[in-house]
Design a protein around this nucleic acid. Structure first.
Length: 814
RNA sequence: GCCGGGGUGGCGGAAUGGUAGACGCAGCGGUCUCAAAAACCGCCGAGGACAACCUCGUGAGGGUUCGAAUCCCUCUCCCGGCACCA
């Protein structure tokens, strides 16, 4: 460092070297002792709830990618605090769940033990070191009875409101995790946790009727300030489609009729057969009695699997007939796996002339193809676009759009059909035949059926079971604990049995934002006053991998509680930003690829401040970036420069207008960028300024006010070194003190001079420096007087001269 | 296949209708040093010229415009999501 004052005129005083380890450990201790980040939750001035998705405490610990949400969210929170808000920034642990349990099994320890250790490691060795201002006095742990008591309470509330149902249905079964999964936990037909291909099973399970809220959840997206990508994913997942239901009479089987759903009622005259989903729960009712055996044998040959490739050769003619509602034609009825029993009505009218899948099926089974919309290529693939109706009786000649309307009207007159809206969203299956979760608070009574555990009897404690491994029998390990299972019915007092499944971990995280402000209340899930003060969350940051899981469930639960009058807002997260994914050498960071980096060694080696800055500087926050640690040297240099520049800024605080303008411009740049999470460019501005101040400081003219400004603006990014330097430069209060962000004057932040480019026919030929705001006429005059322009004009008169104030003058000759 | 996002120097990126490449990494040259490291200063898209300068240049092709990385059309590649949803 600059240890020796070499030149007589430099004011260099002895500076000790920047030692990040000492600085960071010291301030961690001081902040903790002073309680700087324990938020006063009652009657706060300008409350701001700043939330980041909480982690599940894997035993491997955090990886570098975690720094992105935790540091990125914290920068925003620290900035809001400096701007004057009372910021509540809690953190907790999503400790229940298959992910945690699977790990415990792998290392052969009890999940309760593993989690206790992992939580301690996460908190003490990792989360506490990254410089985020977490308020640990309001920590949440979903596996704690003090928490899951209220998860069960929410279950009971939903159950009593008729929003939870015990019913049989086709479910996704993971043969490796030995449990059922929600649709949202199946990715490309595989289990999101272990990537095993899931199977379809028919089981009696607990479902939350989220589909009742499909339209509301869709509509309310428009009111949310969320990343567009996340909203798009939710819209697609809810999957609203508009069409019509059409009733076909049946002949030759037990059922008298069947309703199909179509988005193209205009193609009704092109329907040449009907297809029932092979997994339709009532498929047998479509089969003539004498063909039942044959069809069942066929069906068993193709056990439905969720990951099946489309195979249109699979299908069976059932032997019954459907009567076309408008033409009276007899259509054959088929069963095929390409039709889904669970979507729409589970049955379709096949229009092979205008639907690719129906066409493939018709070709495979030599079924008739009729064209009813003009404009298709003869012999080519099905014409799925629009056109004019043909071969459609009285509707010939109308456009497809009119045809849709007219045919539905006609069907409605005949009571054979009506407009209909369908959603892809399915009900949320929450039963898990596993151990590590909150027991579903239900008692099965032979007389009263499923009865909710009374609220005063909650929590239903998870019994301590030695062998917690899943059995694969379709029953949770809890079923083996006889003394726990056998209870009396809360309604009739007769002998009854507990539900032995636990609930999905996503139910735990669907309401945790409500618990944080109320962790000090043990008699309510969330205190009404605290909730009114703090909810909804003002800023939420996390990964887009939760777009259709956690983020959808949390919205649903909040909305239900709001309808019950229990929470003040219908939406949990006012503003949400998905951070980009951090990739490593071009590949997603993951354990299986072996490219996971542990942040501990980086923090140890470079310090949390440097690591935070470096991670935020990789690229645009919402796009992510490639982690290459080579560039980290630039951040180390930047902080060393700041260390020197701010401590040596002892020149007179002259009111130099140029310097003041420069300072105001910096504040505006950094403030505007942080507000939009453009951290990379904010840091670039700070680097530029630090270099300028460094030059002045080493020359003895660095201004105190510039140093103070630099430290304040840098404080959210690098909380430790700025705190240290704030103290070293003679300040008593914390640099992070609420409401101390420097204000800028918009007039001063605007540049005083402008460099205006001069182009001729769009090619840059020179420039001229002028006062900012110099009018167009003057700019044109200056440009035309430019010697280079005169030369190029060679006496000609320009065809046009376009001037834009402070930007450019373009002279058009040709 | 459908829906998002993206493609800019050797590398990460900046600029969202007005000087392309801010800021940083790497590299090259210099100051300091016995030397090296660190630190500091300068250069740093390609081609041409001693130079002032000139030409080309933002995945490819076309268009709109006085002016396009930016807007429109067609195509292509990469990343993410959904995927037999009738």
């Amino acid at each position: 460092m600059d240890a020796q004052p070499t030149e007589t005129e430099t004011p260099t005083r002895h500076l000790d070297a920047y030692d990040h380890a000492n600085v960071e450990s010291r301030w961690r201790r001081v902040w903790d002792e002073r309680g700087d980040y324990r938020t006063q939750l009652d009657n706060p001035e300008r409350p701001f709830y700043n939330l980041m998705m909480f982690p599940y405490p894997s035993a491997e610990g955090l990886h570098v990618g975690h720094i992105i949400p935790f540091a990125g969210g914290d920068i925003f929170g620290r900035w809001r605090r400096l701007m004057g808000d009372t910021v509540f920034e809690p953190m907790g642990f999503d400790a229940f769940g298959i992910h945690s349990e699977n790990y415990a099994m792998k290392i052969g320890e009890h999940p309760a033990v593993v989690m206790r250790r992992a939580v301690t490691n996460f908190r003490e060795n990792q989360l506490s070191r990254i410089g985020s201002m977490f308020d640990w006095s309001h920590q949440v742990n979903t596996a704690d009875p003090a928490y899951y008591r209220w998860t069960q309470w929410i279950f009971v509330k939903l159950f009593n409101a008729g929003l939870i149902e015990w019913r049989e249905g086709a479910v996704n079964w993971c043969p490796s995790c030995l449990t059922v999964l929600a649709d949202e936990q199946v990715e490309q037909g595989r289990c999101e946790r272990c990537h095993t291909v899931v199977q379809t099973r028919y089981l009696r399970q607990w479902w939350i009727k989220i589909t009742r809220y499909a339209q509301e959840l869709l509509d309310a997206l428009d009111t949310l300030d969320w990343s567009e990508s996340t909203k798009t994913m939710q819209r697609n997942w809810i999957g609203r489609s508009e069409g019509a239901t059409i009733l076909f009479d049946l002949e030759g089987c037990k059922r008298k009729d069947v309703t199909v759903y179509t988005t193209r009622p205009d193609t009704l005259f092109g329907a040449t057969f009907l297809v029932i989903g092979a997994d339709h729960p009532e498929l047998e009712d479509f089969v003539p009695a004498d063909r039942m055996g044959e069809v069942n044998a066929w069906r068993n040959k193709f056990p439905p699997t969720a990951a099946a490739e489309p195979d249109f050769s699979i299908g069976a003619e059932l032997g019954s007939y459907a009567i076309h509602p408008l033409t009276g034609a007899r259509l054959t009825v088929w069963a095929a796996p390409y039709v889904l029993g669970g979507y729409g009505t589970g049955a379709i009218m096949a229009v092979p002339g205008h639907d690719d899948r129906d066409a493939a099926f018709a070709r495979a089974h030599s079924l008739p193809i009729v064209e009813v919309i003009s404009g298709g290529d003869a012999g080519a693939a099905a014409h799925t676009g629009t056109g004019t109706l043909i071969n459609s009786g009285e509707f010939d000649g109308v456009t497809a759009a009119d045809g849709q309307r007219l045919i539905v009207e006609k069907l409605a007159q005949l009571r054979r059909g009506e407009q209909s809206v369908q959603y892809k969203l399915r009900d949320w299956l929450i039963s898990r035949q596993r151990y590590w979760g909150p027991p579903i608070p239900i008692i099965h009574c032979p007389a009263d059926g499923p009865v909710a555990v009374p609220e005063e009897d909650l929590p239903v404690l998870l019994p301590d079971v030695e062998d917690f491994r899943p059995r694969g029998t379709g029953m949770s390990p809890l079923a083996t604990v006889e003394e726990w299972v056998n209870v009396t019915c809360p309604k009739c007092g007769g002998p009854a049995r507990r539900e032995t499944d636990v609930s999905d971990t996503f139910l735990d995280s669907a309401w945790y934002h409500l618990r944080y402000p109320s962790t000090d209340f043990d008699d309510v899930a969330f205190d009404p006053e605290r909730t009114n003060t703090w909810l909804p969350v003002d800023m939420y940051i996390g990964g887009n991998e939760h777009a259709v899981r956690h983020l959808l469930y949390a919205r649903f639960v909040m909305r239900v509680l709001h309808d019950m009058g229990l929470v003040p807002a219908p939406e949990p997260y006012t503003r949400f930003r998905a951070h980009g994914m951090i990739i490593m050498d071009g590949a997603k960071m993951s354990k299986s690829r072996g490219n996971v980096l542990n942040p501990d060694e980086y923090i140890e080696r470079y310090g949390a401040d440097t690591v935070r800055l470096f991670m935020m500087y990789l690229g645009p926050y919402t796009l992510g970036g490639d982690f290459r640690d080579k560039g980290i040297a630039g951040m180390t240099r930047f902080l060393h420069r700041t260390w020197r520049a701010t401590q040596l800024a002892v020149g007179a605080d002259v009111n130099d207008e140029t310097r003041e303008r420069r300072r105001h411009r910096l504040i505006k740049q950094v403030e505007d960028d942080i507000a939009e999470l453009r951290y990379n460019t904010a840091i670039a501005y700070l680097m530029e300024f630090a270099r300028e101040l460094d030059h002045e400081s080493t020359a003895g003219t660095g201004r105190r006010i510039d140093a103070d400004t630099l430290l304040k603006l840098l404080a959210p990014f690098a909380p430790f070194i700025t705190e240290e330097l704030w103290e070293r430069t003679g300040h008593d209060a914390s640099v992070h003190e609420r409401g101390t962000w420097p204000a800028y004057d918009a007039a001063l932040a605007a540049p005083l001079r402008a460099t205006v480019a001069i182009t001729v026919d769009g090619k840059r030929r020179g420039e001229v420096e002028v006062d900012a705001g110099t009018p167009e006429a003057k700019l044109k005059e200056l440009a035309l007087a430019n010697p280079r322009v005169v030369e190029l004009l060679a006496g000609r008169t320009p065809r046009a001269v376009i001037a834009v104030v402070d930007r450019i003058v373009n002279i058009v000759i040709t």
